[in-house]
Design a protein around this nucleic acid. Sequence first.
DNA 1: CAATTATTGGCAGCATCTGCCAAGAAGCGC
DNA 2: GCGCTTCTTGGCAGATGCTGCCAATAATTG
Lengths: 224, 224
Amino acid sequence: MTDVVPEIATADGPPRRGRPPVSEEQRQRQRLDISRHAVRLFAEQGVAGTSGEQIAQAAGVSERTFWRYFPHKESCVEPLLTRSVDAFCAVLRAWPADLELIDHLREAYTPVVDSSSDEDVDAVLDVVRLTHGEPALRAVYLMLHERAEAALVDVLARRLGQPSGAIDVRVQAAAMSAVLRVATDDVAQATVGGVTADMLDGHREQLARALSLVLRGLAQAVGG
Amino acid sequence: MTDVVPEIATADGPPRRGRPPVSEEQRQRQRLDISRHAVRLFAEQGVAGTSGEQIAQAAGVSERTFWRYFPHKESCVEPLLTRSVDAFCAVLRAWPADLELIDHLREAYTPVVDSSSDEDVDAVLDVVRLTHGEPALRAVYLMLHERAEAALVDVLARRLGQPSGAIDVRVQAAAMSAVLRVATDDVAQATVGGVTADMLDGHREQLARALSLVLRGLAQAVGG
DNA sequence: CAATTATTGGCAGCATCTGCCAAGAAGCGC
DNA sequence: GCGCTTCTTGGCAGATGCTGCCAATAATTG
């Protein structure tokens, strides 16, 4: 967001000296890498059966730095899951004012993860499936969707010309994020034996249809 | 659920001997009592600043039995929160087929908690407010609402004559539970300085209106 | 009271997570 | 290259979270 080229000093302070902090991007990549290892271990031996030490070892970092990257071991699934949820939010942010939502999604949305490797698609779906039967992971999943909800509030408030605190905006955003969650759970359940492009397309249609229905009802509330 | 009078043996087995297990009801009362102490401590010194030992001491039980009643210390808020969510689900279950939802709620719903002491009403609202700024509590809150969502799925499936796995039913239930959550957060925010009956009535109206809007859009999907 | 079963509390012990500090890494100017 | 500065890393100690095990006790029946 507020990036500056590392050469120049931050704002007007004294010129930077010493080792520069690692870039946020690199940090995210590190977290994602650990996340992949953690998810594999969680799937193999359950969450309770995997210790932080084990994850750290698998990822090739010390236990201490592992705990620096993740406050709780369950949050290891966050980097992978975020990719899926954030992709959806990004598409919503780019929703043109003169286009029906359903058409925009058909145009711009690739479900689960956008522009990502096949392995990550599988990994994300694995995590979603894991969240059933692993309450701790489910809690992380739900928290993530609530973060998405906050993003949707911003999008909808701007689109509807209402303050982001407006109750109608918040209801609409909550309903949309709930629909996204149900649809995601659904596609994860449907793809236990492997995922095909057809399935993802079906998911998009289902999601678009359900979202349209929710919005149809709510649009009347805000005079749409 | 599968209750039997303690006098008689369970089913056809040998007649019961020895100390009978404590009733589920009494267990719930014990949990609720601990819950009240925990919430007070959480509010006073934060979740991180309150140890399980402290809660146990305040509630007058040993630490060991405390951990037997609650698997994680954050779940201490569950018994109190459950009262609120369960009350809503119970009202929904009693929703007559020939009545508009909004009218049924006006007739049968008392927001936050039904038939409970004033102190508990305040305590529930305190917890809801605490969930902002205390992510661990928020996670419990969200998990609870997802349990409510499952209950709503049953209600809606029966009402609409659809299987409970139907995607439309699940979407509708998810949207409703999301609306309940937003409305509850809203009333908690509005009642920081104390709650009056007027506020709760306003909350019911707001909830009823938002639910009607969500259902209006979704009803067309299932041919309502 | 004896026998039986459930709950409780204490203790040991592993897992989770944090604070602190020393070692090393990566940039700077010389 | 060599200092100088700042950041990251890893190791260690320690508090808290949480579980398994066992002895003590409570509540029931015969």
